[in-house]
């Protein structure tokens, strides 16, 4: 007898048993048979990669995406320890070096050179500022005459009038387009 044939006949027998117990009012046996019948039916198939998708969606990092050292805490602890010790030693050394420097007077020498460089920079900036001031004075002198003042004011007025005209033209253009679109 083929496997599927056997399975189907078993389902039939279980169904029969269940229905007969239900009719007889035998609840415990009816439940037992119904359970057997339902468990005989194919169960839900879990799609491939389901666990991976769950882990990814829940934020749990997957094994393949983590670097090899991430799962070895002793590496992190060791690296931290080395960093701590080396930083401490470097700090002690730096303090020692600084104190050695101060004894030799090198710090003073470095400071003096820095001051000189800053002063030179300041002087150059001062020269540039002076040139700008002279240019400004020349421009102011040019504008001090009455003819020049009239010319400048006239240009400003013409500019304002032109701006007003342009604005009116644009408004008119927009309203025309709006009407045409209906």
């Amino acid at each position: 007898m083929r496997m599927m044939d056997v399975m189907n006949r078993r389902l039939d027998r279980t169904l029969t048993r269940w229905l007969r117990h239900e009719r007889a009012g035998d609840d415990p046996e009816a439940e037992k048979a119904l359970g057997e019948l339902l468990r005989s039916l194919p169960s839900a198939s879990v799609p491939a990669g389901f666990a991976d998708r769950v882990l990814r969606a829940s934020g749990v990092p997957l094994a393949g995406s983590r670097p090899w050292f991430a799962a070895r805490p002793w590496i992190w602890q060791g690296a931290f320890g080395v960093w701590l010790v080396s930083s401490f030693v470097a700090a002690i050394g730096a303090i020692g070096f600084a104190s050695a420097l101060s004894r030799a007077g090198l710090i003073v020498g470095l400071g003096s050179r820095a001051m000189i460089a800053l002063t030179r920079l300041g002087a150059e900036i001062g020269t540039a500022m002076k040139a700008l001031l002279r240019a400004g004075e020349a421009v102011a002198a040019a504008f001090s005459g009455p003819e020049t003042l009239v010319l400048v004011l006239g240009c400003a007025l013409a500019s304002l009038m032109a701006l007003g005209a342009l604005s009116s033209l644009l408004a008119a253009e927009r309203s025309t387009r709006h009407v045409e679109s209906w």
Binding site: R2, M3, M4, D5, M7, N8, R9, L11, D12, L15, L41, P42
Partner: peptide, 19 residues
């Protein structure tokens, strides 16, 4: 619930239908 290896059409039908 059924497959090609089943030789009884009535059984095939009944088994499949029952599920």
């Amino acid at each position: 619930l059924s497959g090609p290896e089943v030789d009884s059409p009535e059984t095939v039908l009944r088994g499949r239908d029952l599920g």
